[in-house]
């Protein structure tokens, strides 16, 4: 694995960003709109009698944490789609660039873009609602973000693997695929609110432990290490399986011929 080739792929996407100001809406516009709408809605709920305590914090935390998962999976899948749309796949993989190097590059790119988005959302949260998440979570935000990031990675790898196998006809999964897990992730409500069968599924969704942990921290100030541990264990397992699936999908795409992907 050569660092200069990984850097070349990162530079390729940074160059692309320079000419794609419309894409900044993914990093800034949509998160800002979500934050404003959900923040104001939760402020209204909080002003009603008998409202749930900490409702503003609970909803905004859910929203911001979900952004970490969404952005990290989106970066993997859209980076692949960018190459398909521009018919650049054959150019890339006929060069010395390996699929592992490409993958490392888009994962790094995802972290960079996620950090920029999260920093922006933190500033907005502080500006509009005078809420600083660091006050509630402290440095436990880092492991939580790390685990959310891993969740985004394995989801992104599965979707990217499906795109390699079925081409751009399944490209909509890049935007919609992750939402299949959203109801079971218990982003804005406790797992106990789900029907029984859905609660069983949510046990296998590592993000559900993270959102539950976040609410526990907000309500009690206690760090639920067990929930973070379970999430880490399942996340690592899924990441390994998703990596194997992605690499096998790449091999399958090579068997058919990568030029077929360029042709859509």
């Amino acid at each position: 694995m050569k660092i200069y080739r990984i850097w070349a792929v990162i530079v390729r996407h940074l160059y692309n960003m320079k000419h794609s100001w419309d894409k900044l809406s993914d990093s800034f516009y949509w998160p800002a709109m979500d934050l404003i709408l959900w923040g104001l809605t939760s402020l209204y709920f909080a002003s009603q009698k008998g409202s749930v305590s900490n409702i503003v914090m609970i909803l905004l935390t859910g929203l911001i944490f979900w952004q970490v998962i969404w952005r990290s999976q989106y970066e993997i899948t859209v980076s692949l789609l960018e190459e398909l749309w521009s018919r650049n796949v054959v150019n890339l993989f006929a060069s010395p660039l390996t699929v592992d190097e490409w993958l490392v590059a888009v994962l790094i790119l995802g972290v960079i873009k996620m950090l920029v988005t999260i920093l922006f959302v933190f500033l907005l949260t502080w500006f509009f609602y005078t809420i600083n998440l660091m006050n509630s979570f402290g440095f436990f935000l880092l492991p939580i973000f790390g685990l959310l990031l891993i969740s985004g990675w394995w989801i992104g790898l599965i979707v990217a693997g499906l795109i390699l196998r079925f081409g751009t006809q399944v490209q909509t999964l890049a935007w919609s695929g992750v939402y299949l897990l959203a109801p079971f992730s218990a982003i804005y409500y406790p797992v106990s609110q789900l029907p029984g069968w859905a609660q069983i599924i949510s046990k296998f969704v590592p993000a559900s432990y993270l959102f539950e942990a976040a609410r526990t921290i907000l309500k009690t100030g206690i760090i639920p290490y067990d929930q973070l541990g379970i999430s880490l264990f399942i996340n690592i397992g899924y990441l390994l399986l998703a990596t194997i699936f992605f690499k096998r999908s790449f091999t399958a795409a090579k068997n058919v011929g990568l030029a077929g992907l360029d042709e859509g």
């Binding site: 018919r87 054959v90 042709e263």
Partner: peptide
């Protein structure tokens, strides 16, 4: 003739 380069970039 079957490959191309990213069209948004220079």
């Amino acid at each position: 003739a079957y490959a191309n380069l990213p069209f948004r970039m220079t």
